[in-house]
Design a binder for these strands. Structure first.
Lengths: 253, 253
DNA sequence: CGTGCTGTTGAGGACGATCAATGACGGTGG
DNA sequence: CCACCGTCATTGATCGTCCTCAACAGCACG
């Protein structure tokens, strides 16, 4: 949509949040020798990809997924602008895991070669920022695990939407429409498409999601967070902590 | 049980696997000024703990958990000897998340003060080993997420048992009995205690788990991995990759 | 103007939750 | 040595959430 976001703004916000220095962003972007566009539904990274390069999502939304034995896609996480798509392969190359990354919208990807990454990581501030990003990734997985394990479909879907909304806002994207389909939600929440559809209709009838249009559009964030019992503070977003924390306070009323 | 394991053997194995150097272990252990014993069922770390120290599990098994609004415990991950219990709090202190760590067996914990951690991390080999540990943690969460989201209770429980068995073996612990109860499995798999019990009885009737005694004792690992569709290679354990990978090969017959 | 993808609706059935009660085991103290 | 207690394991019955199958409608695309 807003193609001018390719400047790396979200990435800059994210690095700053992780404690990197101002010039770390410039140096990182300098190492990007190539950018590619990927249309929606295409693979950004194949399930058997072994290229010696790290990809960073600049524009759009992707998901990392795994194929189940029955052929269905299981979405493990979403990536938003500023997120690395396959940093794990660079850091822990031993890990064998057939995971692909697919574009959910039209995307722009930055590519950095491994040999250039080596140089980048000699900067301690950047290295520790990326370490924090890894820990944060683990925390996000952990939180999703806790929301998946228990609770009704309504709560699980609401939690998923809250997480994505908060992460988008954390990188400066404040659109109420979420950039993925009900099918994507189903594959990510571990629910059937049919049931996700009914769940979303429930959320619409509660005036939490917009009733107009096909897109998943959040119109009552506070209520959504209440349903999800979502406490956004785990995402470590100082600039947003207040916003989401306030909602938690409200819940106690 | 084997109190002489307090020497740090599992921790050494783990660090070695993560690419640390031989003397990194010694230096890490030198920073441990205090060790504590925690009896089974006690909290290792309270849900509101803010002490400026990092804990490493030396002996026993712990879980990190979260209380759900209904008061029930939801287990997010297990820790085995050599694992850090709360490294994330040191690295990403902003993250607010009410997570506790509970001893499932009698445990021995090593404690390192934050100020000593700062010194330790000036060693690049140790810092990058801990970075890898963080990524590996994220990978483990991701894999659990993929097994939780889909599949029947039988598969989910089997996957959980496989993961713990493999991780225990990775640090040199080769006992067939798993160090936790059916209740713990239920809280970790997001299933009711009753249904976990029935699932385990199914596994026993399939001669996958031992029929004698209360403990969860794996007698047919190959079959268990087949049921779980478990591919242990994601754990990045070179010394065990062969073992578990072979089973995957067998599955194709 | 068809073709594909996504969204929507209905009906039936399965898996797992919940409630309730009992059994088995180990530890503790009389 | 035995009675008691707490924790964990086990069993049966009922109920509800969510899955599956199947069909159709709406929209965007060439």
């Amino acid at each position: 949509m807003f193609a001018d976001c390719g400047s790396g703004l979200p990435l800059g916000l994210k690095l700053k949040r992780l404690g990197a220095q101002a010039d770390d962003l410039d140096i990182l972007l300098l190492a990007v020798k190539r950018r590619v566009s990927v249309p929606a539904r295409d693979n950004v990274i194949g399930e058997a990809d072994t290229a010696a390069q790290v990809r960073i999502l600049l524009v759009g939304t992707t998901c990392s997924y795994k194929r189940k034995e029955d052929g269905n896609r299981s979405i493990l996480s979403f990536q938003h602008p500023g997120d690395f798509c396959d940093l794990h392969r660079y850091i822990v190359p031993d890990v064998k895991s057939v995971i692909g990354v697919q574009a959910l919208t039209d995307c722009t990807i930055a590519i950095i070669e491994y040999r250039d990454m080596d140089k980048l990581l000699s900067r301690p501030t950047l290295a520790s920022a990326l370490w924090r990003a890894s820990k944060l990734e683990a925390v996000i997985y952990r939180e999703r695990l806790s929301s998946m394990g228990a609770g009704t479909a309504l709560k699980r879907v609401a939690h998923l939407l809250c997480e994505q909304l908060a992460r988008l806002e954390a990188v400066g994207i404040h659109a109420p429409q979420l950039p993925f389909s009900q099918i994507d939600v189903a594959d990510a929440a571990g629910l059937s498409i049919v049931h996700v559809n009914r769940t979303i209709q429930t959320l619409r009838s509660l005036n939490v999601l917009s009733k107009a249009g096909r897109a998943i559009e959040v119109v009552d964030r506070k209520q959504l967070a209440r349903i999800a019992e979502f406490d956004g503070r785990y995402l470590s977003m100082p600039e947003l902590a207040l916003k989401w924390a306030v909602q938690i306070e409200d819940m106690r009323n």
